[in-house]
Structure formats: C-alpha cells, structure tokens
Nucleic acid binder design. Sequence first.
DNA 1: GATTAAGCGAGACGGTACGTCATGTCTTTGT
DNA 2: ACAAAGACATGACGTACCGTCTCGCTTAATC
Lengths: 208, 208, 208, 208
Amino acid sequence: MTGSSRGRPRSETARSAILEATRALLIEDGYEDMTVSRIAVRAEVGKQTVYRWWKSKAEIVAEAALNGVIPMEAEQPVATDDLVTDVYTLIRNFTEPANERGGSALIRALASASAASETSGAQLWERFAEPTRAAITQRLAAAVDIGDVRDDVELGSVADALIGSLLLRVLSRQPITSADFEALADVILCGISTGSLGQRSTERSEDS
Amino acid sequence: MTGSSRGRPRSETARSAILEATRALLIEDGYEDMTVSRIAVRAEVGKQTVYRWWKSKAEIVAEAALNGVIPMEAEQPVATDDLVTDVYTLIRNFTEPANERGGSALIRALASASAASETSGAQLWERFAEPTRAAITQRLAAAVDIGDVRDDVELGSVADALIGSLLLRVLSRQPITSADFEALADVILCGISTGSLGQRSTERSEDS
Amino acid sequence: MTGSSRGRPRSETARSAILEATRALLIEDGYEDMTVSRIAVRAEVGKQTVYRWWKSKAEIVAEAALNGVIPMEAEQPVATDDLVTDVYTLIRNFTEPANERGGSALIRALASASAASETSGAQLWERFAEPTRAAITQRLAAAVDIGDVRDDVELGSVADALIGSLLLRVLSRQPITSADFEALADVILCGISTGSLGQRSTERSEDS
Amino acid sequence: MTGSSRGRPRSETARSAILEATRALLIEDGYEDMTVSRIAVRAEVGKQTVYRWWKSKAEIVAEAALNGVIPMEAEQPVATDDLVTDVYTLIRNFTEPANERGGSALIRALASASAASETSGAQLWERFAEPTRAAITQRLAAAVDIGDVRDDVELGSVADALIGSLLLRVLSRQPITSADFEALADVILCGISTGSLGQRSTERSEDS
DNA sequence: GATTAAGCGAGACGGTACGTCATGTCTTTGT
DNA sequence: ACAAAGACATGACGTACCGTCTCGCTTAATC
C-alpha cells in the first residue's frame, strides 16, 4: 500500500503497439470494419489492455489517427519573405500527408470517429485542424503587419477553406492534386472579382 | 411470358416509410448507433424488405440522407444582376438546410456512410455536392461573361471551398453562422492580398 | 349465386405434384430441412396453392409420407393355413417398404411431423399403424378360432411390438434385417420361457 | 507456455442452466417450437455460450433429453429369484419415467433430434436404448443360466420389443399403461401359440 | 359470346429464428 | 499487480423460412 507504483509498470510498448496496429487496420479495413479484437491480436496484447487505456473504439481511433496524420505539420515555421511562396509551402505541407499511403484513410477514420462520438467530436477536430489553422493564421498575421494582406480579413476563414476543401476531397475519394489547391490559393490570394465591385463592407451578418 | 411484372408489385409505401424512418433514426441516434432492425421496426416493415432494396446500411443512409438534405437543389436559379447579393443567397440556400433540425446529423451520416462504403463514396458525394457546385459555377460563369469575374478563375474551387467549409463545421460540431460564411464570401470575392502582389500566374502545378 | 362450384376447378395435377415433390424432398433433406417454398418450386406450383389445401408443413408431410409408405395396406389378406408362414409374410410386407429407397426417411418424417403437431399426432399414427395392426390382429384372430393361438392374448400388443421394433430401428438408423424381425417373431410365437413357469395370470394392472 | 488452460474457465453453472432450460422448454413447447434464443434467455446466458458448446439445436436437445429421461435407470440391479416379478419391475422402471411430467415430451424431442441430425442419430438412440437393453439382457442371461429361459432366444429382440412399444405409444400420444406393457410381458414370457406348433427352427434368415 | 368467380404461378410483404460476430466486462493462469 | 488469454452477457448482423397478401393470367360455369 505504498500507493504510487506497486506491481508491474504499464508497458509503453503495449501502448504504442496498439496505436500502430490501429493505424494499420484503419488503413486496411476502414473505421467500420476494424474491430477491437483484431487490434489486440495484431498488437499482441490482451483485449483488456486496450480497454484499460481507452474507453471506446472511437477514442482509440481518434488518438491513433491524429498521431498518424498531423505530427508532421509542426515542422518548420514556414517563413520566407514571399507570401505566395509561403502559402504554397503551407498547402503542400498540409496536403502531402493526406496523399501518403493511408493518409486519406486516417482522415476518413477521423471523420467516422467524430461522427460516432458526440462528446469528443468537437475537440477531435479541434486537435486536427488547429495546428494547421495556427500555422496559416500566424504567417498571414505577419503579412498583415507588413501590409501584404488586408487587415479586415477573417484569417480563420482562409484556414477553414483549405481544410474543408481537403476534407471534401478525402471523403468523396477524389484525388488530391496540387493543382486544385493552387487554384484555391489563387482565389484566396486574389479573389475572383475584377475589382469593379469595390471593397466589400462587413456590416451584415445576423446568423441563424 | 413477358416475365417483367409478375408477382406482387413492390410497395412504395414501404419504400418511403423506410427512408423516413432512417432519416428520423439518423437524427436521433447518428449513423453508428442506428440499426437496420430499428429502421424496420420504426417503418413497420420486415427486415428483409429493407435488405431487398438496399444492400447495406450505407446504401440506405445514402439515399435517405440525400433525399433529406438536398431537395433544395431544385430551388430558384438565383439570378439578380448583383453578384454579391446572389453569392449571399447561394450561401444561405446552402447553409440553411444544415441548420434545420437534423440537417447536420444527416450530413454527418452522409460522411460516415461514404467513409464506410468504398464503392458508393464517390458517387454519394457527387450527388450531394454536384447540385450546389452546379448552381454556384453557373451563376459565376454568367458573371464571367458580364466581366464581373476574372475569366482565369477555377470556379469549382470556389464551390469546394464553400462546401468544404460547411462540412468542416458540421463534422467538428461547430455552429454554422452566416457571419462565418460571409467572411468566406468576402475572401472569395475580393481575395486577401492588398493587390500589390499583382495577378498570379498559373503555370506551376502538375502532380497528384 | 348458387354458390357451389363456380370458377376454375382445383387442379389435381397440382395436388399430386405437391405430394410427389414433398416425398422427394423428405427423402433428400429430411423433415426439418425441407421447406414449403422448395416444395412449391419443385412442384412448379405457387406457394399459395400449397397453403390452400394444407394448413401446415406437418399436414403436407403427413399426407405425403403416408401415401408413400403405407399403400401396401391394401395388399393380400395373407392367409395360408400355416400361422408361421403367414406371420413371416406379414413381417416381410411390413418391413420391406421401409427398406426401399427412402422408406426409412419417410417414416422418420412421419415421426417428426407427429412430434411437431400436437393435434394431428395421434390420428397420424393411427392411420400409419392401424392398417398393419388390423392385418395382424385379423390373421391372429383367425388363428385363435382354429386354436393355434391362446385366446387370452392381447393381440394388439403383438402388433405394437412389431411396429415399435421397426420404428426403433428406423429412428436409430440401424439396418432393418429379416433376421432381427424373425427373432422377434420367434419370441412372439413361442415366448422365451421354458414353460416351467406355467400360464401367467392377468389380474394385476390398473394404472396409467 | 503450457498453453493448455489459460483464460477464463468454462462455467459449469452456464452449462447446467442451459440443459435445464432446454428440458423445460422442450416440455412446454416441443422440439420444433423451442428456439435457441429462448433457451439462452431462460438460462440467463448469451446465445454464443450455447453455440460455443453445442453445434446445433439437435445436439443440445440430445444431451438435455438424455440427461432428463434416462439417468434413473441405472438404479437397482433388479434381481429377485422370480423371473416374472423382475420383468414386471424392469418394465415399470422403464415406463414410469416416460409418464412423469414431461417424460413423453422428452422422448418425442429425442425422436425429432435424431431424425434431424444424420450424424448423431445412431449414437443418440444407442445411448437411450442401451442402458435398458443391458438391464434386460443381463437379467435374462441369468435366467438362461438357471434354465428359466430358453438358450436359443435372441435377448436383444425382447428389449427392442419393449422399447419400440414404448416409443410407438409416445409418438402416437397414446397413454402408457402398465396393462399394455404387462400384456406385452405376457406375450414375451409365454408366447402366443398353444404349443402345438412345436419348437420353431431358426434356420431361415437372409435379409434384404 | 360475355360475364364472373375462383384457382393458378409468381413473388413481395410483416414476422421471427437462425447461426455468426463484435462490444465491453470478468475471471482465470502466467510472469 | 499487470499482462495474455479467452469465456461471458448482450445484442446487431444478414439470410432463410413461414404463412399472408397482391398481382395478372387462365379456366370453367353462369348468364
């Protein structure tokens, strides 16, 4: 009854084997066809060991898929002095993981898990989208300071447009091409209007 | 011996009761917690009658959710002579169904179904996204003709940004506000740059 | 509105095709694995036509199996002047149908049908066992008259022993050999005791 | 790495609850109307636990009914020095279980199960009939030694006649009276002929 | 000959049981 | 005390069959 650490300590090996196995099965079978029993067998772990650390299939998937998709974005600060170059780099950093073997499957799994679990849905996507959103808004804020970007723009919308477009392509199983995202970058940077419309005002906005 | 229409004809009553029950359960329980047995009970239909017409839960959900979410497609052509007004109207027509009771749940169900079913994923989203995409690109194409919109813009990207942003908010269970979408419209119409960057070229862009 | 016989008359072709198909399927699949749908398909008949004439699977089987197993009932009166010869003939007439291709299966079907249907069980076996019982008791009664058989013997018991022995062999899927039944005939005709026990009295015996 | 007995051991409680529930439902509903689901519910057991130990309804019923009908026969050796008394006792020991509440139903279930399952049919009846057969032949063999019974009698036939007669009555849902079986005992002990026929020869017997 | 009523093959219907599989819990032995 | 193994209660899965119910077609007897 020393309390803190009696008996055999928890195995970090088991933990990472479970996440790795989950990732592999998610890519092979998809969220719905993957089972906890198979995760345990693949990870060479008892089923109870899985349930000791995570409460449900959705939770395991959330952690496994997040670890599999997003860790690579916390890479470089992405800052040259050219806004266009940097936006392109941001987009590439963002879309490439999704194109790697299984990346799309993991994002689809994230979507299924978040749809399944009412409680963790919001925070799950927050954790998925926030790093990207932070990288984008940070670079753009710098551009606002320099005067390259208008100071009345809602920068979060730009991030949402990028992430949302990616999500749409992943869920609809369309290929994710740089061309598509560069066309989007084009729209975001320059807009679509010829400018004859004048600067839009931002006054109206009572939502439902 | 025509062989075509022998035996008892299929019951349209049963068909629509199944779709209606599916819709209701999708809103109440979500994709994963909804069961085919409960659909059958709620629709006062035998389980076999469900499986006779649809091969899987994903297929039923695809049809039911599409019928429930997108019938707005056949609305008005949306055409005043003011591009800004029309873009706002398009956005409103698109986001309002998602905010109505259950609209978000149906879109989440659509996402889960498409993630679950490899085969029907693409066509499912095609049917969901295409009507909106068509309405948007059609209106913008008219604006291109008049000279309100640049003629080198990839109009599909605009639609994807709108639809993707909606999808992101629905899956992350954020509220869908007009303000958010109007900020997005602002970006899309006018861009974010101060214009000092000049017209972007479109030369670089071949990879997957 | 005479009410008696308007409309299309019932098809005797259909009726006999159903019974024939039932018999075939009973032999191929056994009682439990045979289905009414397959009867209908095999007989090239609508399922409703089956249910128009019989209320349940047990009823169809009862009629089909009886028609298939016991038509030997209307054979010869079996009467030479030698009791031993005649008992042997009776046994042979009785056991041979069971050995023909499918005979055992039909008897097993009869057993299953009677076990399944509380109501028709008694009458079913009555129809199966009674003709045989009648033939046996009739011949023995004649022997009693002549003095070949004791007049205090319960002749029904003799028939039951024969039929029951057959039934036991069929249900336990043992081969049905003449040797077995002739040994039984030996016991029945002569008894097993050496005779030193004297004639048994019949006084004790009231309970259920 | 013994590999033999790891994991949770099988629950004997569950096992006996299943057999008990099966017996109860067999008596209430009969073989055909009893369902595995109801067995599981009644035994407060998961359906999978039933299927883990038995492959089919027929197998469960075989074991349950045998345990319910026959264990009481391994009673006393039944041996006074009076053959008649002992045969009567044997018969009583044999027919009484069938008359107890549900005994007939269990025997009918045994018949249905053996008709349904090709493989286990023979061994099933062997296990049902053999204890009785052994008891009878053993007692009679002793009688042969003393000289009370002829030494050329096929003793198995006597057992078959008794068991078969019981079976016939059970399946045809006739009441099982001692009177009937005592009449049969009378025939078996003394035969039916007046003796003028002389001792039968046993030479003929080529079966079909 | 036209009408009419019933039987016909076909096959979808509302139910219910099947036997399998997954979830999340519980109870063993092994380390 | 934790891990692996795996049995447990629960309950959904997708299939099969039951017995009923339309369909459109065919077949007489009645008009």
